[in-house]
Each structure stands twice: as C-alpha cells, then as structure tokens.
Amino acid sequence: MAELTPENWRRVDAYFTDTLVGHDETLEHAVADQDAAGLPAIEVAPVAGKLIHLLARISGARRVLEIGTLGGYSTIWLARGVPDDGLVTTIEAEPANAAIARASIDRAGVGHKVEIRIGRGEDVLPTLTGPFDLVFIDADKESNALYLDWAARLGHPGTVVVVDNTARGGDVADPAVTTAQIEGVRRGLAMLGADPRFDATALQTLDRKGWDGVAIAVLTEVVEGFDDVGEP
C-alpha cells in the first residue's frame, strides 16, 4: 500500500481526473480567466465538479441554487447537469467576480440556463422563490448554518443539499482551532446532524485542493423551530 502523502494523493487525484473527468478546454479556460483576474484559487477540484454535476443529474434537478459563484467553474458543471429548460440561480457577493463568471458561463454555452444574483447571500436569499431541487453551498463558511436554513426554506422534501469544505485540513475536529471559519463549519455540521429537516453525512476528500471534505444531505421535511445556528 502506498504511503499517504500529498504527492501520492495528488497522483491518485490526477489519475481519477484523467480517467473519469478528462480535460475540458471550456472549464480550463474558466479557471485560467479567474486566475488572470486575481481571484483566489478556491474553485472545486475537477472530480468535485463532476460530483455535483452527477448529483444534479441523479436527482433529476431542474432548479439549482448555488451560493458562491466565484469565477463560474462549479456553475458550469451544475448548468450542464440540468435539462435545457432548467435553471441554475447562483449568488455572488462581488460584482467583478460575477462579470468574470458570466463571461465564462456564456462561453460554455450554458448562459441561458444560469442567472447570477449579485449581493450577499443573507440579502439575496430572502428574495428568491423556491422550490429548488439541489442546493450547493460554497461561500463564506461563517454563514453555513444560515445558508442551510435557507436551503431548507427554499427546498422541498427530496431536495439535495451539498456543503463544500467541511474538513478544512482536519481543523474541524481540532478543538484547539476556534477561528470564525472553522466555527462556522462546525455550526453547519451540527445543524445537519440535529435539524429534523435534514438527513446528512460527510466525507473527507483528498484531491488537488488538499485535505478537505463535503457534506451531502437530503431535505426530509419542512418544519419550523430551528434558528440559524442549528440549535432548537
């Protein structure tokens, strides 16, 4: 058995990417454009992009909500996963990021399936009308519980909810780490475990982005009584 090292897990990730995802000039162009504009390199890895794409297809999603557009890389994956008359609504706080994303999304040929709402999630989410069939949460981690609450409000029983970046290099399980981001991830995970609206699990991931994780949930019912920090 190979030793678990960054070099080896990145080799496996490259093998999975080459074998199961392949190279896509449109997606690679989207990443290149966001890099050239100085956006942080925090888009999902190709294997994770393919995962959310497949989840959209498996769930039969027609309406998708994405919280955190960045340069549009994950948005393109999601838009490719919905039918031609489907719609991905994606929220981006920074207008400059949204402009880069719009150009990449249009170039990918899925612009007619994507609407970008510019503004902070906490401000935009109350203006949306559901239901959404899949919700992908990949924005500021401090607000994960707030975003999960809105995912439940805007979803329906059977809605798939995906939360990215849930392991944070192992820090999520280290009680000595109490940064705002890590505490936000913990609140979100605690909410997924305690809130009866969700049935969830989480997996650690090792890919080109490093050691992290993803939580996947299904919305089971619509109930009131849980606040935005996941406590009754």
Rank of each mutant, 00 (worst) to 15 (best):
F132S: 03
G169S: 10
G119S: 11
F132I: 04
V160H: 12
L128F: 07
L125I: 08
L146V: 15
L148T: 03
V172W: 13
R168Q: 14
V160F: 08
L154S: 01
I118N: 03
L128S: 07
I137Q: 03
V163S: 15
V162A: 13
T129A: 14
V172H: 14
A151Q: 01
T159L: 09
P126L: 05
T129W: 00
I118W: 01
E142L: 10
D133M: 11
T127G: 10
G169D: 12
E142G: 15
D171N: 12
L134N: 09
L125F: 06
E115H: 06
D123M: 10
G119P: 07
L146H: 15
H156G: 01
Y147H: 13
T166G: 07
G121T: 11
R153I: 02
I116L: 09
V162C: 11
G155F: 01
K141Y: 05
L128W: 08
A151N: 01
N165W: 05
R117C: 11
G121R: 12
D133E: 15
L128N: 06
A151P: 00
N165V: 04
G158S: 10
T159W: 06
D138V: 01
G169I: 09
A139Y: 06
D138G: 02
T129P: 01
R153L: 02
G155C: 03
A139C: 08
E142Q: 15
D140T: 13
L125V: 08
R168H: 14
F132W: 03
D123I: 06
E122Q: 15
L146D: 05
L128C: 07
V160R: 13
G170K: 14
W150D: 02
H156E: 15
R168F: 13
D138T: 00
A167I: 14
W150H: 15
L148G: 02
N165C: 05
V161M: 11
R120S: 11
L154I: 03
D171S: 14
D133N: 14
F132E: 04
G169Q: 10
V172T: 14
P126W: 02
A167M: 15
D123V: 08
V162Q: 11
E115L: 04
F136W: 06
A145T: 05
G158W: 15
R117N: 05
L128R: 07
V162Y: 08
L125Y: 05
T166S: 07
I116R: 00
L146Y: 15
N144C: 03
D133I: 10
A167G: 13
L154R: 01
T159Y: 08
D138K: 02
L134K: 11
V135C: 09
S143F: 11
R117D: 05
E122H: 12
E115A: 13
G158H: 13
R120W: 12
L125E: 09
I116N: 00
G130D: 02
